[in-house]
Design a protein around this nucleic acid. Structure first.
Lengths: 336, 336
DNA sequence: CTGAAAGCGCTTACAG
DNA sequence: CTGAAAGCGCTTACAG
């Protein structure tokens, strides 16, 4: 810890506007204007050039803390997402980043494994005075309000949220299973408290009822990792088979991978003895053994839509708000 | 845009220390001390309690911008990582987050897909006055210096870096291939400019030379995604086979997945006609068709080691700096 | 066109 | 034990 007195501006390596101003022979006010591109018609060309030269030579960068303090808010956009072990979120992030672009700087925060973003997370990031906050798969959409604009992703029912329209995808999945002759299926749920999982389950159960397919009372759920899913499936897979289940639908592809792994270990033929399907359509779902049938949720699209909505809010204009379409990608794991 | 005059503190919903002080009947200096836990022996218990009550009632949170401006730096730790479509990074992040814990707030930044973190990324985040910056898989470790402590991850050769000892893993892989009778192999490289990829390749080639295995002159490389890998492999797979190649080693598991996919499409038996192996040992590598042999790089360990090193630097103590061990996980894709 | 000055919300010697 | 005040580095009316 340096003991340098604070009054002496010990050259901390940090270049300030004052240093730029001195070198350019102007005031820091002028430096601020030039650096922020607000010099048109306010600063003469020769002076502006001198400032730019000095900035270049000194490697000056506007201090974010000071700037956002003075301005009231900064150019940060915060995206709070659940644990990234689900590759789905990588896609969402990409969509957001490509959309907020250079205008804002995107920073991410991830929750503890298996946790959903909650109110307190939003609160913690308000401190940073971001331009806006995006929350992916929040636990409860109720009280996510803040002093900055907040957009919720994949938070069905919430206001100020962008969502998938899961109906089409789920119905296609159930129709697909029905056509393959399945009449009794199991559902492997996530332990996640994200509302989207409740929606997936209930839409699935509804569709099954309509299609005259029975959902097995033998329940299982797990964290969204392959290991956790395999651990949850191992104890119940025999009960499923004994119950006459011929297909299992998992709330996420990573969960479905766990089913595939247990089936492989037990020598249960997929799809002959047990069909398997998931949600997300992860990139790796095309190379599993067998390749996995999945309801495709385009993550990058979700990220893009959320970012557009935030930008629209910041600009004070109305945002289009279409629910994003989902579709079934049938593969070998259901005999496609 | 609100036109509120700045002088009137329009109740922006933001609670300030002044508001807390007024409610508690003290000064903002006292509020600051209490809120930062520096009140022991400096503030009387009844006053401290009144402050805490007021904080509670008002929901006061210290403003990050103002705090880090006044203090010189804040409690943020920034982790800059390449595009997250490689699930490997999720592990690294988890290791970092679990280690920096509650003392610091972790924020992430990801580069454009296929890009590596560069100097300019570090520069951009210095603005935030973080306590430290972690850079995963940087392009060049040379000039990554900043006004805050920087720790490089997976940046072989750099000073202030934490790394894997790839030797053991690579040698085990090559010995494994040799034992299975392979004498001519191909290497599928990543287009990534991260130095770790150069190291992987050169260690592999060295080990092959020693083991009297020939590396095919038929070259291929791709972005670290399954699609990109499949696209790069498709045009060369016949040439590999024609060249007498019996095994292909990919610089990352995601690349190896691309090989598996092309092999499946072409009806090339794995491992009978072509053995496949990768680096990373991703969770999904246990469920691919066939399951993938891989050099395991424990991502969470890397993140943990880097975070410990940063904490040590901040505390001014020496950091232990063991290279992290790697090992081979043999699976069906090489006939294990 | 230009700069002095107030203010953003904190933290921290310093003086009581 | 407590508070007034300076200072962190900017931005932005405002007065020249």
């Amino acid at each position: 810890m340096p003991t340098t007195p604070r009054s002496r501006s010990a050259p901390s390596g940090r270049v300030t506007a004052a240093m730029v101003a001195e070198r350019a022979g102007t005031s820091i006010a002028t430096v601020s204007l030039v650096v922020n591109g607000k010099d048109r018609g306010r600063v003469s060309t020769p002076i502006a050039d001198r400032v730019r030269d000095a900035v270049e030579q000194l490697g000056y960068v506007v201090d974010h803390a000071a700037s956002s303090l003075a301005r009231g808010s900064g150019d940060l956009v915060v995206l709070i997402a659940p644990d990234l072990s689900n590759p789905f979120f990588a896609e969402v992030i990409r969509g957001v980043r490509d959309t907020v672009g250079d205008r804002f700087q995107l920073v991410l925060s991830v929750t503890e494994r298996g946790e959903q973003p909650v109110d307190a997370d939003v609160r913690r990031f308000e401190r940073l005075r971001p331009a806006g906050i995006l929350v992916d798969a929040p636990a409860e959409s109720a009280s996510m309000s803040a002093s900055v604009p907040v957009v919720l992703l994949d938070a069905p029912g919430g206001p100020g949220a962008v969502n998938y329209d899961l109906t089409a995808g789920v119905q296609a999945l159930v129709a697909h299973l029905r056509a393959a002759g399945h009449r009794r299926v199991a559902y492997l749920d996530g332990t996640s408290r994200a509302t989207t999982f409740a929606v997936r389950r209930s839409l699935f159960e509804q569709a099954c009822t309509t299609a005259d397919i029975t959902v097995s009372p033998v329940q299982a759920q797990a964290d969204l990792t392959i290991d956790a899913a395999a651990g949850a499936v191992a104890p119940v897979v025999d009960a499923w088979l004994a119950d006459g289940v011929t297909a299992v639908v998992a709330a996420a592809d990573t969960l479905a991978y766990g089913v595939l792994r247990v089936a492989a270990e037990r020598g249960i033929a997929v799809p002959a003895s047990l069909a398997v399907a998931g949600f997300d359509d992860l990139p790796s779902s095309s190379v599993t053994a067998p390749s996995l049938t999945s309801v495709a949720l385009p993550g990058a699209e979700l990220g893009r839509a959320a970012a557009l909505r935030l930008l629209a809010t910041l600009d004070g204009v109305d945002a289009p708000d279409p629910a994003l379409p989902t579709r079934l990608v049938p593969r070998a794991s259901t005999g496609a």
